[in-house]
């Protein structure tokens, strides 16, 4: 019974304990491994203006990477991969203009 509840909890959108996005993000920021999101967004604002639709934090080979989806003026949907420690933009993918490019 406990197992089923735990499984259901894990599948539900916000996982409850330390393994969820926000707790990982906070832990990383507090540990100084990652820039605070506020700082990062302020830096991005200048070169990549737009409305932030979604933010994810991923760990790839021990490197923290922010994946940010932006809706830019003119209706362009842009996906940025940003080095979470330095704020450097690693990759910029544009989507949504080509209908067949939709996932």
């Amino acid at each position: 019974m406990t197992l089923i509840v735990a499984l259901a909890t894990a599948l539900a959108s916000p996982p409850t304990l330390a393994d969820n996005d926000q707790d990982r993000a906070r832990a990383a920021v507090l540990a100084g491994k990652v820039l605070p999101l506020k700082t990062l967004l302020e830096r991005l604002e200048r070169e990549h203006p737009g409305q932030v639709l979604e933010v994810e934090l991923e760990q790839d080979d021990g490197r923290w990477i922010y994946e940010i989806k932006l809706l830019q003026p003119g209706g362009r949907l842009v996906k940025l991969e940003v080095d979470a420690a330095s704020g450097a933009v690693l990759q910029r993918k544009e989507r949504g203009r080509k209908p067949d490019a939709r996932p």
């Binding site: 916000p14 409850t16 969820n20 996005d21 926000q22 707790d23 993000a25 906070r26 990383a28 920021v29 990652v34 605070p36 999101l37 506020k38 933010v55």
Partner: peptide, 11 residues
């Protein structure tokens, strides 16, 4: 102890 995801790295 618990925060919404929207709070992200803040409290």
């Amino acid at each position: 102890v618990l925060r919404s995801r929207s709070l992200w790295d803040a409290e």
